[in-house]
Nucleic acid binder design. Structure first.
Lengths: 195, 195
DNA sequence: TACTCTCTATGACATACGTCATGGAAGGTG
DNA sequence: CACCTTCCATGACGTATGTCATAGAGAGTA
């Protein structure tokens, strides 16, 4: 709470991620980010000569790293790891986040994709990289628990797709139950990686 | 191409839906919508005294109706209907749309949710209604083909979640294969509605 | 003709945006 | 000391936004 915080540059990236998550990219002004980060306004143009695009790109990279780390953390703390367990692990965090913050924040990747993925924004590459990073983390984790590599890719895509959609539905309907539903409905497929 | 088009009011709602789908809500200006619909600017404030919120709300309702009709259309044209067949039916349209328009347009519900679902916008109610309408259409269709009512709800949530997420991934990665992946991976669960 | 209702036209308002320009502190190095 | 790089401060510019106010067509009705 007190003491030294992280340097302004990092704070701005973090703040950008959080604001984008809750209001989207266009609705998140650079001035909002600076204010939210308690950062000097002049520092923005110094640290981010690429402007808003650079900031959003870095926010995406930060978020992807965070997500990937969370995925990886499952393997270390699970007693008998399973694909469905990993998926539940991923969903649980969202469940807590959504209830704690009253559905305020969604997924930054979804927010950015919805606004920018259709055009040719410079943010498109960071976006794609973020998705790839997250997906790869899931694939690695699945392979680590014995899922064949080819099947792992498909399962990872399915898991992330279902999770993202469930997050959206949960926010729209203000009901985290959608997350539970998806987790329990998906468990059978995830754990039947025989073929 | 020629002949009389639909009245300006309808055209504006339709244009709003398309623009929101591709650029998001905040990035879609009222003036953009008016221009895209070839509508008189003064007509906007006449038909939509509720302003932009009303317009976006009606665009969502329009989209939900469209989606629901598409879902319902499956039952009439399928020889041996199955849940996985319905899901493939839903995904197929998106596959074609995404390839035809080069990933330009996504789902309007996702776009709106990403930007507005976190706050207390007036658009939140139309949003929730749209999600409910779509979900209910899927539930009805599942029940019609013999899926127990309770299970149908869960499956519908799963189907919509996975579809939405796959649309997002497809746009981000510019790869419609994600849709195929989700369809084939999900087929087993969808058709095993015994328990 | 006169009145009314629906629809359109146009200009203006206040605000907010991203970006840029300029200048000043702070601190290390020659 | 001078010098230079890093970082912060502040004001301004041009543009775009959503909304509003006002007025004018156009048709229908008395």
């Amino acid at each position: 709470m007190s003491g030294e915080e992280r340097p302004p540059r990092e704070r701005m990236v973090y703040s950008a991620a959080q604001l984008v998550r809750s209001r989207g990219v266009s609705a998140t002004g650079v001035r909002d980010v600076v204010a939210h980060a308690n950062a000097p306004r002049g520092s923005f143009q110094h640290y981010f000569p690429g402007g808003k695009d650079q900031l959003v790109g870095e926010a995406l990279a930060w978020s992807a790293d965070y997500a990937a780390r969370w995925v990886t953390s499952y393997g270390r703390h699970a007693e008998s790891p399973s694909p469905s367990g990993l998926f539940a692990h991923m969903a649980r965090q969202w469940r807590e986040e959504l209830t704690a913050r009253r559905y305020e924040r969604g997924c930054p990747m979804m927010a950015t994709a919805a606004e920018l993925a259709g055009g040719d924004s410079p943010v498109n590459e960071p976006l794609r990289a973020a998705a790839g990073r997250w997906e790869q983390a899931v694939v690695d984790e699945l392979v680590r628990m014995g899922v064949p590599a080819e099947r792992a890719r498909g399962l990872a895509t399915l898991m992330i797709s279902a999770l993202e959609g469930a997050i959206m539905l949960a926010r729209v309907c203000r009901d985290v139950g959608r997350l539970d539903t998806v987790v329990s409905e998906l468990a059978p497929v995830l754990d039947s990686y025989a073929g």
